[in-house]
Design a protein around this nucleic acid. Structure first.
Lengths: 210, 210
DNA sequence: GCTCTTATGTAACATCCGGTACAATAATAA
DNA sequence: TTATTATTGTACCGGATGTTACATAAGAGC
């Protein structure tokens, strides 16, 4: 077994608590005093475990991804690309207003430091956002090869579109938008989704019949 | 004439310079030293003119709106709601990557402080964003009354949709997206725009013929 | 038991933060 | 000229910041 005095805090727990602070106050607005108080530990413990403030922040980002992993897996396992888009945007609309974890509304990856005196922070956030966009893009690339997306559709642009919409929803949520409002916006966003001409013709014919 | 020693700086000029600092580093990341150096004035001049850091920031926001006013007026004077949407999103896609003013890519109202140790800052930003959304909503309300939008369309939701999309584009721009990428995303976003059933039927019939 | 290793709590460190006191300066008003 | 008023540059303030030194505590290995 590992020698030395054991830690008397749970890494996941203190990361969750630090997360709410970074989320609410941003990277620079979260002081070490804020963080240690919320985490229930003293500075030396924090520095021993995470190196420094930036190290803690990066650990929090990893933890954030872990907590969102389930949602992304569900989204990516949807049967067709439009379902992926729907599950993704509806999922975002839902968790963006979910404050049950004592976090503010919105998304940590958008709120905690788009601009910063230390450029590494916006960069780290952008990388984490880009990773999700990449997952969507790769899914849509496969869909296009499988004929589930029109040849004219560009997977990268579609992924960017969903990513942009999701970030936009998060900005709205942070400013106080309700779940219903976000769902209504997501609904419009989904109307833009490209479908096969065959399916489109069928759909519009159906609509015209009414 | 006004008595006392005259100022030897131009308010607009120093606000523009302060703007680039807040834009690049965020509200909390921008130190007084950064600001005074960029503005070319000393702290007492800054405090005499703007009260304090928050006062300066609010003045910068007003200045930002002034500089964007022309774009918004052009957007709102478009002949029909879909043109409004198109001009708006294409305009955002354009200025979000425009760094000719030494500002970073993106939008000051999104980047400079979504989360902050002082809640007044995110609130002020949200108000400025909401003002533009309100202008769009009121325009769409008139359009709906004028029969330029389907009865089923909700002006508030449409305005929120455009606002969310615009903010999402800004987040993408801040992370390094190109103008072409943003335009492609905006193009998809516009495909979602609601049209009259009559026009929709005509359009889809035309498409089916090809 | 003792040693080694790692974590802990207290208390402090240098540095930077936003903000200001003060005297000098430059204009107007009398 | 003199008085008045507002702005300027210098130099500094108390307090908060991120970070660490240090002595102590608590487990494992012998």
């Amino acid at each position: 077994m590992r020698t030395g005095r054991p830690r008397n805090f749970c890494t996941e727990t203190v990361l969750d608590r630090a997360m709410t602070v970074f989320w609410r106050k941003g990277y620079e607005g979260a002081s070490l005093a804020d963080l240690t108080e919320a985490m229930g530990i003293n500075p030396p413990s924090l520095y021993a475990a995470f190196g420094n403030k930036e190290g803690l922040f990066r650990a929090v980002l990893e933890r954030y991804d872990d907590r969102r992993k389930g949602l992304m897996e569900r989204v990516l396992s949807a049967p067709d690309p439009k379902s992926v888009a729907r599950l993704f945007l509806e999922g975002v609309a839902e968790f963006a207003v979910d404050t049950s974890g004592r976090n503010p509304p919105g998304c940590l990856l958008v709120q905690s430091g788009l601009s910063c005196s230390d450029d590494d922070i916006p960069e780290a956030l952008a990388q984490h956002r880009a990773e999700k966009e990449r997952a969507l893009r790769e899914r849509f690339e496969r869909d296009r090869k499988d004929g589930k997306l029109p040849r004219s559709a560009d997977p990268a642009t579609l992924a960017r579109y969903l990513s942009a919409m999701a970030n936009g929803l998060c900005v709205q949520a942070a400013a106080g938008a309700t779940a219903a409002e976000l769902r209504a916006v997501a609904e419009i966003a989904l109307a833009a989704w490209p479908v096969h001409e065959k399916a489109a013709a069928k759909k519009s014919a159906h609509e015209n019949a009414h």
